[in-house]
């Protein structure tokens, strides 16, 4: 499968279909046989740093992603490792927080935030690295309807190329133009989102209906 620049692609499939594994390969957290190319770069040890700057992965459980004692430190983590100077790190962190509408949260402890807030901060932690591609694992899992709606609106605002792994078909319909169905670790179907969502048989076969 391939994803074009600026495209928003949904990755759907039952639990255990291989969504998270695929995500792990997109920025080299997992390695295996086969090839992954990001922006023309082959995934290998030499390119790992550049690829990780290009691909921002937002993990399913924001608690795993927010590992610093304050929101600001967490959002500044990526830029710090990229080796920017202090003012740049500060600027990037604040821009990222503004982009997810969480500018006032810099000094807060991630533990005390709601799930929706944590999710936004988790997105900011990768936005601060200026990624070209955002990869999101189950972005709406565990959110209440309003937080979910707000998150979808936020994702619509963001210009990055997106790969979104989810079970949330309403999100898929709202946000993505193309959908890839995974089953048993392989691509089972691929097509425009409306076409895939109309294929009730296909969805039922993959536990999505």
């Amino acid at each position: 499968m391939s994803v074009a620049q600026g495209e928003k692609v949904a990755l759907v499939g039952a639990n255990g279909a291989g969504k998270s594994t695929l995500i792990g390969h997109l920025n080299g957290v997992l390695r295996g046989s086969g090839t992954v190319r990001i922006d023309g770069l082959e995934m290998d040890k030499a390119n790992l740093g550049r690829i990780r700057a290009l691909v921002g992965v937002v993990f399913q459980d924001p608690d795993d992603q927010l590992f610093s004692p304050t929101v600001f430190e967490d959002v500044a983590f990526g830029p710090t490792y990229q080796g920017h100077d202090k003012p740049t790190i500060r600027r990037k962190a604040h821009q990222a927080l503004e982009a997810v509408h969480m500018g006032d949260y810099a000094g807060r402890n991630p533990y005390h935030l709601s799930s929706g807030e944590k999710k936004r901060i988790a997105i900011a932690t990768v936005l601060s690295m200026d990624p070209r591609i955002l990869v999101l694992d189950e972005p709406t899992a565990g959110l209440d309807p309003r937080s979910r709606r707000e998150l979808i609106e936020l994702l619509l605002e963001l210009p990055q190329t997106m790969v979104i792994a989810t079970h949330d078909l309403a999100l898929v319909e709202r946000l993505t133009s193309r959908t890839v169905v995974l089953g048993g670790g392989e691509v089972a179907a691929e097509g425009s989102t409306p076409a895939i969502l109309e294929d009730e048989d296909l969805l039922a076969r993959h536990g999505l209906r």
């Binding site: 700057a53 459980d61 590992f67 990526g78 490792y81 990229q82 932690t125 690295m129």
Partner: peptide, 10 residues
């Protein structure tokens, strides 16, 4: 998972 999240950010 935390390790993966850290590594993804450099």
């Amino acid at each position: 998972r935390v390790y993966a999240a850290m590594v993804s950010r450099g």
